[in-house]
Amino acid sequence: MSGSLVYSAASSLRFSEVTSLPQPKINRSRNGTAKFPTGARSFKASAQTLNAEPYVTESVRRRVSSLYELLKVNETASLTEIKTAYRSLAKVHHPDASESDGRDFMEIHKAYATLADPTTRAIYDSTLGFRRRRVHAGAMGRPAGRVYTSTRRWETDQCW
């Protein structure tokens, strides 16, 4: 009822969190959104908007460093694994299934939309670049979730 109203008024604007650049336009382009084809922009929202993501503070967004981690899948996950992970997470985070307001689920869906399309996934992977090994190692250190496949892959093999 009134909750949704309060929520939007208080949280839709976190402009103060924006990095203190004087020129918003420059800021947006620096965020890298414009450089990618349309599909790829979904994983990096521009900071200055009402749609800004920073206030997805709660559960999902803050503690992840990659879309793979968000979906709790391996970076080498197949499309089927990604889809299965997406659906499992949807059952937990979709507003119909939980008390959540849908923000978490929107992030999950964005991650899914990016990773389910081979083109946008490739672009995203290239932006991961140097972080890849570190992220991957971090992900492997976590306890395996139910959507996690435990098979050995070439990365794991190379570790030892």
Partner: peptide
């Protein structure tokens, strides 16, 4: 430009 927060209250 140059101001990182809305200049008037947001309308919903």
């Amino acid at each position: 430009p140059g101001c990182s927060s809305p200049v008037v209250p947001v309308v919903e």
